[in-house]
């Protein structure tokens, strides 16, 4: 099997990170996460609803998975930093998926806020995994700041459009020495495989599994897609050629 994913000082057997949102129900979420093979599961931080009760998502997940809180919904560096600090207090983890969104229609990251937020959190002792644009310069700056990984988008969050700019993703992979995790835009298993074949270290996705017709089956497909892509990357693909090259021996053909 392919080798391990190492982020900061922690190693994981799976190269798929999964979100915990938007599943048809809690049991399907648990079954899908199980089928995905993921060991890292993301959660969000929200104001408590005093009237609401019930089992918290964290109670269901904490025993089995490495919980990665996010700063989803934050539009400023200040809100993102405070959300990260609240997550650290609530969940007792210094890992954070840093999101600073610039626009609610595209949910593209706001780099002007992302970079200082990342710098402040790194300084405050966080293991920072920033969701960012597929921009090699931004990724290099995030790496220089001391982030533990960069997480460029493949396409807008929830769009299922796949890798819109594989060339940039390849440049990013080449330019930074920390893990590159494609976060957002994956639509189906082949999208995940393509990203992994480019040399990405992992995939983070949510909607493509949670909103598939059969989330548990799609989770298994993503698991296989990520593994297949990684194995192909490690194996090394053959060069592309314009013309054919026979695979059977040329000599000894009858009638020649």
């Amino acid at each position: 099997m392919s080798n391990q994913l190492t982020i900061a000082d922690k190693s994981f057997g799976s190269r798929l990170l999964i979100g915990s949102s938007s599943y048809p129900n809690q049991q399907i979420m648990l079954d899908a996460i199980d089928a995905s093979g993921a060991q890292i599961v993301t959660v969000a931080m929200r104001r408590i609803n005093v009237a609401g009760g019930g089992e918290s998502v964290i109670d269901l997940l904490r025993e089995r998975y490495h919980i990665l809180p996010n700063t989803a919904g934050c539009y400023t560096a200040r809100d993102a930093v405070l959300t990260a600090q609240l997550a650290r207090e609530a969940i007792e983890t210094n890992w954070i998926k840093l999101e600073v969104i610039g626009d609610e229609e595209t949910l593209f990251p706001d780099v002007e806020h992302l970079l200082p937020a990342a710098a402040e959190l790194v300084k405050d002792g966080f293991i920072v995994l920033p969701y960012c644009n597929d921009d090699p310069i931004t990724c290099r700056k995030l790496a220089d700041i001391g982030c533990a990984a960069v997480m460029p988008l493949g396409a807008p969050i929830g769009s299922g459009m796949g890798l819109r700019n594989p060339y940039n993703i390849e440049i990013i992979r080449d330019q930074v020495s920390i893990p590159v995790i494609v976060d957002a835009g994956i639509g189906t298993a082949s999208d995940a495989a393509v990203a992994m074949e480019l040399g990405c270290d992992a995939i983070l996705l949510n909607t493509a599994i949670a909103k598939a017709r059969d989330p548990v089956k799609m989770a298994a497909a993503m698991n296989a897609g990520v593994n297949a892509g990684r194995l192909a990357f490690e194996a090394g693909r053959i060069p592309r050629k314009l013309y054919a090259e026979a695979s059977s021996p040329q000599a000894g053909v009858i009638g020649a």
Partner: peptide, 10 residues
């Protein structure tokens, strides 16, 4: 004052 907790998220 903000009081928060973890919820499902992506």
């Amino acid at each position: 004052i903000e009081i928060v907790k973890p919820v499902s998220g992506g």
